[in-house]
Design a protein around this nucleic acid. Structure first.
Lengths: 146, 146
DNA sequence: TATTGTTATACTCTATAACTATA
DNA sequence: TATAGTTATAGAGTATAACAATA
């Protein structure tokens, strides 16, 4: 088996590169864990938002999670077709989204998969380090979103 | 204009979520900056590796950057067709990759775009904080790669 | 006029499988 | 047997443009 060649110099100064590389690996592990539920990471995040804020519209979810309306539409349609999410009219154009009983059960399982993903990915960090890292990352992306 | 709804609770504990969100925004900004060069972020990273380790094979690049052989092949073919990269046989199956003069000029421009991307994305971090963040991210992804 | 939801479409990046040629 | 390179193909996620219906 060939040894893993080391990463050459220019990358050692690039936060963005290491960010992307770690994100790719973490999301890949999460995708594997969610695969048995036939759920994509993005779909899981949508279930989490609906559970936390019942009656939310899909436009609002898109704004919270940074997902375009055009991409929310088919995803919510799929979740509804699977019986995980229900819609009820708010007004003539908006629809309130809620989890069905089956959707709530799916959310709970997705939550477990996500917790295991976090444990496996960040086991080497103390609770304080993890919290500090979250804070740093969140501060950075919120600055870029404006 | 509607206010941005705040992210609900469950995400506040998830490193992975904030990692992915930041990575997405940073890479989106980099993609925009590279667009005028008609270069994708992944292609730029390949130019960086070839410049730093002339004569490297595409299999080695894939191992360094976490890109599969199957995805390296068409990318290198494109870079060669554009006159940015040249190939020379190492043995009957491997080919040494080098930047052409035009490839080196492209690399330099991509490097500038990347530097501007880093400056814009992480302006709020001190040099020490940036270095510490790189170290933390790299340590984490290298653990997950084994 | 602005917003919600929708459809169509394209692109980047990643993944697996199968194949040829060479070591 | 293992490795280098290639081709075909599929999937997730994102992007823009355009449209109908509603506020």
């Amino acid at each position: 088996m060939a040894a893993l060649p080391p990463l050459p110099d220019p990358f050692s100064e690039l936060v963005g590169y290491h960010l992307r590389r770690l994100s790719q690996l973490v999301m890949g592990d999460l995708a594997e864990r969610l695969d048995s539920l036939d759920l994509r990471p993005t779909e899981a995040s949508v279930l989490f938002v609906i559970a936390a804020t019942p009656g939310v519209t899909q436009s609002d979810i898109g704004r919270m999670l940074g997902i375009k309306r055009a991409n929310m539409a088919p995803m919510v349609a799929t979740l509804e077709a699977r019986g995980l999410v229900s819609r009820s009219a708010v007004d003539g154009r908006s629809q309130a989204l809620r989890l069905t009983a089956e959707g709530e059960s799916m959310r709970a399982r997705a939550r477990n998969a996500t917790r295991e993903n976090e444990r496996r990915s960040f086991a080497s960090l103390s609770d304080a380090e993890r919290a500090a890292l979250i804070d740093k990352l969140q501060t950075l992306w919120e600055k870029l979103e404006g």
